[in-house]
């Protein structure tokens, strides 16, 4: 019976270690997931793209409309300087957005892009974007921010209008540079 108790305790120790290991594994999935997304090229909306083909297709025109949003009580003003632009596929397009911090303290926020139709995402290459970094604005500060992009020729013919939407989220806690 004593040996049985010892064997049972040894078994319990092993199983507790497995359970703790799996708890750690849950957290290890986070860097693993990020690495997979990086390798597979998924989810890299906040990184600059390399443009391979800048051949301009002057036979068609694309309209891009801009949409701006603020979330989680972020007391900013956020607007595109132009509501929409028209351009040819392959053309380098440079537009600006303006943000203003209406609150009385410095605030850090991050813009997250979204677009419609979904299929356009694959053909939209951003060379520079304010969404690549967090933006920290002092009280009352106004900032003009660039978006430089190319929509490649490979965009399907039936897409004539693309909507780009940016949403600023306040970044709090240790990941935000303004505490």
């Amino acid at each position: 019976m004593v040996s049985n108790v010892q064997a049972n305790n040894a078994m319990m120790r092993k199983l507790v270690i497995v359970a703790c290991g799996m708890f750690g594994f849950g957290f290890a999935l986070v860097p693993f997931y990020n690495k997979i997304c990086e390798v597979a090229g998924i989810n890299n909306v906040a990184k600059a793209d390399a443009v391979t083909n800048t051949q301009v297709d002057s036979t068609r025109l694309i309209t891009m409309e801009f949409d701006t949003n603020l979330r989680n009580g972020l007391n900013w003003t956020f607007r595109p300087l132009e509501k929409s632009v028209r351009f040819h596929p392959g053309e380098l397009v440079n537009v600006s957005f303006e943000v203003k911090n209406n609150s009385d303290r410095p605030v850090t926020a991050q813009a997250i892009p979204s677009w419609a139709p979904q299929v356009a995402g694959r053909h939209m290459k951003k060379l520079d974007c304010f969404c690549f970094t967090q933006q920290t604005l002092q009280p009352g500060e106004v900032r003009r921010m660039p978006l430089v992009f190319v929509i490649e020729n490979s965009l399907p013919d039936d897409v004539h209008v693309v909507t780009m939407s940016y949403t600023f989220f306040p970044v709090e806690g240790r990941n935000g540079s303004a505490g």
Binding site: Y33, I112, V171
Partner: peptide
């Protein structure tokens, strides 16, 4: 203040 699932802080 972590941002595991908050896109604004680099999560997903």
């Amino acid at each position: 203040g972590t941002t595991f699932f908050n896109a604004a802080g680099g999560g997903d």
